[in-house]
Nucleic acid binder design. Structure first.
Lengths: 337, 337
DNA sequence: TGTTAGCACTTTGGCATGTCGAGTGCTAAC
DNA sequence: GTTAGCACTCGACATGCCAAAGTGCTAACA
C-alpha cells in the first residue's frame, strides 16, 4: 500500500465530496479519477485512511466523507493554490478602486468576498496605531458630558462621549483642547498613551480631573474603539447551502452576531499555510461553529486586522483560500501608504 | 349567522394557530374557547370566513389557517393591545439607560427588541434635521482630498471625504473652515441647505470652486448620510423559527442585507393602527418577504426614523406591536431633548 | 332563520413490509 | 501488494394499510 497513493485517494475523496455533497465510494472514485488501480485496492486504502481518522463512513454501506482531520491534512499538505481567474481579478480591482471612505472600502470588500466565495464574509476594522493625530475636538454636550472627537490623518474619525467628572465651561474646555492638540498633533495613535501623562500634568490643578478624564477618553479612542468592530455580508449564502448545515444555521448566525466571538476567533487563528489561516469544524473554539470552517488572513500594516470568510466544513478550500488571499492583498494595497 | 361571532371565530383561529402552528379545526375551537355553540355551527362560520378569503384550508380535511387578509383584519379590528409585563418594562428601561453614544443606544435597542420579540429587529438611524451645528472641521488628506467632519450638538458626528476639485493649502482650508463655521454654527441641520449659498458666494473667487465642493459635502452629511443606514440584530431568530419559513430563510436574509430594500419598506409603511404600522406577507413590496411580516413605528422627532421587527406572518401581533411601540417610546425619550 | 346532530367522505401521517442498489469487508488467488 | 468475487448491511423508496382529524351536507329542531 503506497503512501503517496493514499494521499491521492484522500485528495480525490475531498474533491469529489466537495463537488457532489455525497459520500463517495470506491467504485465512483476509480471511474472519476484515473488512479491506475482497481476499486478493491482503493477500498483497502480507504480502510487505512479511516483507521487513521481521516475519513469516515456515515453508515455501513455508504461511501466515505472526510473528517475534520482529513480536511486539515488536505489543506496542509495536499491542496494546491488555485489562481483566480482573470475575470475575478478584474472584479476585485475595479470594485475596490474608486472609493475613499474607509467604511465604504470595507463594505465593498465584504460584499465582493462573499460573492466571490459564496460564503459569509467578514472584515475587521483595521488598527490605527500608525496613523497620526490630525485633530482633536471637545464638544460640551451637557455640563459634564463632553464629546471627544479624534481625527487621524488617514481620514479616520473616532468619537465618544465621556463624563469629565467636574463642571466645565466652554472656555475652559477650549483651553484644554488647545493644550491637548498642541502637544499631541502629529503623534502616532500607538504612542498616544506615552504622551498623555505629560499633557495632563501640565494642566492647572483646577482642571486636572477633567483633563485626566479627557485623556482617558482619547486613549480609549486611539486603542480599542474600532478594531473591536467588523463588517459582515453574505449571510444569505448560509441559507442557500442549508444542506451543509444539517441541524440549523441558527448557531452559526448566533456566532456571527456575537461579534466578540468572531473577533476573538479571527485574532487567535494562526496564519499557517500559504499565508492564510484555516480553522476547521471542531477546531473552532465556539461550539456553534462545529460544522463550519473559517478561512482568514491579515491585511494592512502588520497584517493585524483580519479579513476572511465563514462557510460549511465542506467547502472548496483551495479556491476559497485563493480568493481570501487575493482580496486581502488588494485591500492592503488600497489602504496602504 | 352572527357577524360578531364570525369575528370571534377568526380571532380564535388566529390565536390558536399562532400558538400551536397547526391548522385549527372546528372541534378544537369549541373546546378551547367557550363560544357557546356547537362545532357544526362553527363549521358554517368557517365556511363563510373562507368564502370571504380570510382563512384557508391547506387541504381538504385539515383545519383552517388565516390568510394574509385574515391577519390584516385581525390586526386592524380585532386584536387588543397587550400591555407589557412589569419585567419587560424594567428590562427596557434599565437596558436603554446609562448609555450616551448614539451607536451604542441603537445597538442596545435592536438587541433588546429582538430578544423581547424573538424576531429580527431593525432600527434606522435617526434623522438629524433638528440638531444644531456645533462644529465643522476640514482636514486635508491629499492635495485635493478633504475630510469634512460635521459635529452636531446632539453628539452626532458625520464624516465624508470629498474632492474639492482644486489644490488647496492648509491655510486656505483653515480660512474656509473659519468662514463656514462662523456663518453656520448653531444652524439646524435641516436648514443648512438654505444657508449655504450665502456662505459660498462670500468666498473669494479663487477658492469658490473648493467652497462649492465643501458646501455640497456638508449638505450631503446633513441630509442623506446616516438615515440611509440601519442596525440589525436577532437574525438567528429566523433560523430558530425555520418551521415558519417552509422554503428557506434565504430570501429573507437577502432582503435584510439589502438595506436599501428594508429602508424603503420601513419608510413606506403607513402608520395605521395604535400608532404602529404592520405589513403582512404579500403586502410587502419585496417578493422575498412574501411569508414575512414587518411591524414598525417611528421614533424621535417627527417619528421620522423607524424602528421595528421582521418575523414570520404567523406571529403574535398584539404582543409584538406592544413591544415595538414601547421600545420606540423609550427610545424617543432617551434621544429626546 | 339560525342551530344542531349525525354521517359519509377525504386526506394526512404513521407504520409495517418488501425490494433495490450502492458500497463495504473479507477471503482466496495472482 | 493487488485483484476478483461474493456475502452482507444499510438506507432510500415504494406499497399498502389503518387510525385520526376534519370537513360538507342533509335533515331535524327551536
Amino acid at each position: 500500500m503506497s503512501e503517496p497513493r493514499k494521499l491521492e485517494v484522500l485528495r480525490a475523496i475531498v474533491e469529489d465530496y466537495v463537488h457532489s455533497r455525497e459520500p463517495v465510494g470506491s467504485k465512483a472514485l476509480v471511474e472519476r479519477h484515473h488512479l491506475g488501480v482497481s476499486s478493491a485496492t482503493i477500498r483497502n486504502d480507504m480502510a487505512a485512511l479511516e483507521e487513521e481518522g481521516l475519513i469516515t463512513a456515515p453508515h455501513t454501506s455508504a461511501g466515505r466523507i472526510p473528517t475534520d482531520k482529513g480536511y486539515r491534512l488536505f489543506v496542509d499538505q495536499i491542496s494546491a493554490v488555485k489562481p483566480l481567474s482573470q475575470a475575478e481579478r478584474r472584479a476585485i480591482q475595479s470594485l475596490l478602486e474608486g472609493s475613499d471612505d474607509l467604511d465604504d472600502v470595507l463594505e465593498r470588500t465584504v460584499r465582493l468576498l462573499s460573492q466571490l466565495t459564496n460564503q459569509v464574509a467578514v472584515v475587521q476594522y483595521p488598527h490605527l496605531s500608525r496613523a497620526l493625530i490630525r485633530h482633536i475636538e471637545f464638544v460640551l454636550l451637557a455640563p459634564r458630558k463632553v464629546l471627544v472627537v479624534l481625527i487621524a490623518d488617514s481620514g479616520k474619525v473616532e468619537q465618544r462621549v465621556i463624563d469629565v467628572g467636574q463642571d466645565l465651561g466652554d472656555d475652559a474646555l477650549a483651553g484644554l483642547r488647545t493644550r491637548f492638540l498642541g502637544s499631541l498633533a502629529g503623534t502616532p495613535l500607538g504612542q498616544l498613551g506615552q504622551s498623555l501623562p505629560a499633557v495632563v500634568s501640565a494642566v492647572s490643578p483646577g482642571h486636572r480631573q477633567a483633563a485626566q478624564a479627557l485623556a482617558q477618553g482619547l486613549e480609549l479612542l486611539a486603542h480599542s474603539s474600532r478594531e473591536d468592530r467588523m463588517v459582515m455580508a453574505g449571510t444569505a449564502n448560509l441559507a442557500r447551502s442549508n444542506v451543509d448545515f444539517p441541524l440549523s444555521i441558527g448557531p452559526v448566525l448566533e456566532a456571527l452576531e456575537e461579534q466578540v466571538v468572531m473577533l476573538r476567533l479571527l485574532s487567535e487563528m494562526a496564519q499557517d499555510h500559504h499565508g492564510v489561516a484555516v480553522s476547521i469544524g471542531r477546531e473552532n473554539p465556539y461550539d456553534g461553529l462545529a460544522e463550519a470552517s473559517v478561512v482568514a488572513t491579515g491585511y494592512g500594516p502588520d497584517s493585524a486586522a483580519k479579513v476572511g470568510i465563514l462557510g460549511p466544513t465542506r467547502m472548496d478550500y483551495p479556491t476559497t483560500m485563493a480568493a481570501v488571499r487575493a482580496v486581502a492583498r488588494y485591500l492592503s494595497r488600497i489602504l496602504g501608504p
